[in-house]
Nucleic acid binder design. Structure first.
Lengths: 250, 250
DNA sequence: CCAAAAGTGTTATTTATACACCCATGA
DNA sequence: TCATGGGTGTATAAATAACACTTTTGG
């Protein structure tokens, strides 16, 4: 099990971090996985981490993601670097210490550690799309909790983490059709309505049902299966599956 | 005058650099500004630099750009981070030293310097578009020359700098319509043909004249001025100018 | 038979692409 | 009057958006 609470002891690249916007989907709602820190003061912060010397940045992002979600082979993508000059943890950490002075007697926040972590940081933003059902959110030792929050109703987060989510979402919208990553959010089989609701929660707007179906089917990546009888008093919808065979005939 | 040849002495963020793809346009040709290093062995490398502790990354990129081109207020934009694990100068620098051992007796490449610069680096890629006529390329002490090279006919460059140019160009193509105004690489006034030739050199393909004009005018960012009499034996083309008023009627 | 939700077809509207023609200019 | 390059209009095709109608299902 990896620990992250003594970064200054690790062989990390200094002053460079990775912040992850982990997007998940459930009950027609798009959510972000956000840990709450185990300190007084209600601090939320995006899952983040550092980069080992012998580790690629994508690799590091994947490791951070796996540590928090337990799943491997996640699609993720960098979307921007955040590196303004005044970008530092110091203001947030000072407030944290102010509120938690009593319980900080241990070695966790010794001087060296504090200096390391409060320096100005440049952070690479990554976003990922995961299936909430496959995820078992995992706290680190610094977390009080880690939960999914609706993307349009996030808790107050430290530093520029709100802007990061906003920026990640915009990038996702731009790339959605090209990258087909949206299908990572859906279960093995799904109905067209589910795809549409997913799109609608990502774009935060409605689409016309028939045109949407046409558009998605024209992407030529879905395979139609049998119908799904739900017991509801209406026509049974078809189930679809993402076909991952290479090239497919028209 | 700033110097860059003793990075380890400076208060830079370590292991983090900026590489700039400076695109310029002249005579219907898109070119990249590439310095050649003042060492035996024909090494070309994109203009790059490091980030001061009290400097934002955009600010650093702008400084690096100004150092090389002499012009301020350049529009530039990050396009990707390059941070694979094996990304280091060491292979290139070892070869450089092998070829230049005799002239490297001075302090420039002492041990400390070598260690600093040969560590694994993560680099933020920035691209900019500039008007070649406004640029006076400036060598640093490490450069033998600095010149414009056609973007489709670049010299061999070190490390992953070719990939950087490729990636920058792709990003530019995606954003060109939106950013057209931001890149001041057309003169104050210009003809539609000039705009088209600019587009054609960026996309490396031809556009239909009339359709192109319609598309550009539909962007609603140009203002038509008087005609331009060139003395050529043909109809005089209109001149255009970017209109910088805020909102404009349809 | 009804309401609910799904499926499908048809028509506009917009956008992109292709083709054709006319106009101004200086030699 | 001719070649050259610029401006404009129209036809066609493709992609989007809008509208309308039918079908299945359980109560």
């Amino acid at each position: 099990m990896r620990d992250i609470h003594s970064p200054s002891e690790q062989n990390y690249i200094q002053q460079l971090s990775i912040d992850c916007v982990i997007l998940g989907y459930q009950d027609s709602q798009l959510s972000v996985l956000v840990p709450k820190l185990n300190f007084r003061g209600d601090f939320w912060a995006l899952p983040s981490g550092f980069i080992y010397q012998n580790e690629g940045i994508d690799q590091a992002a994947r490791r951070i993601l796996e540590d928090r979600t337990g799943i491997k082979d996640i699609y993720l993508e960098q979307f921007r670097v955040f590196g303004d000059a005044p970008r530092s943890n110091i203001r947030f950490l000072e407030r944290l210490i102010e509120l938690n002075g009593d319980k900080l007697g241990d070695k966790r926040f010794d001087r060296k550690e504090f200096d390391w972590i409060t320096r100005r940081f440049v952070s690479i933003g990554y976003y990922a799309l995961v299936d909430i059902n496959k995820v078992v959110p995992r706290k680190t030792e610094l977390d009080e909790s880690i939960d999914w929050y609706p993307v349009r109703d996030l808790p107050p987060m430290i530093m520029d983490h709100h802007e990061m989510v906003k920026c990640a979402l915009k990038t996702l919208q731009l790339n959605l059709d090209q990258k087909l990553i949206a299908f990572n959010l859906l279960p093995e089989t799904f109905t067209m309505r589910e795809v549409q609701e997913l799109y609608e929660s990502i774009f935060d707007r409605a689409f016309a049902r028939n045109n949407f179906q046409k558009k998605i089917l024209d992407l030529n990546v879905l395979e139609r299966l049998e119908k799904k009888f739900t017991g509801a008093a209406n026509k049974a919808p078809f189930l679809y599956r993402f076909r991952n065979e290479g090239t497919q005939a028209g």
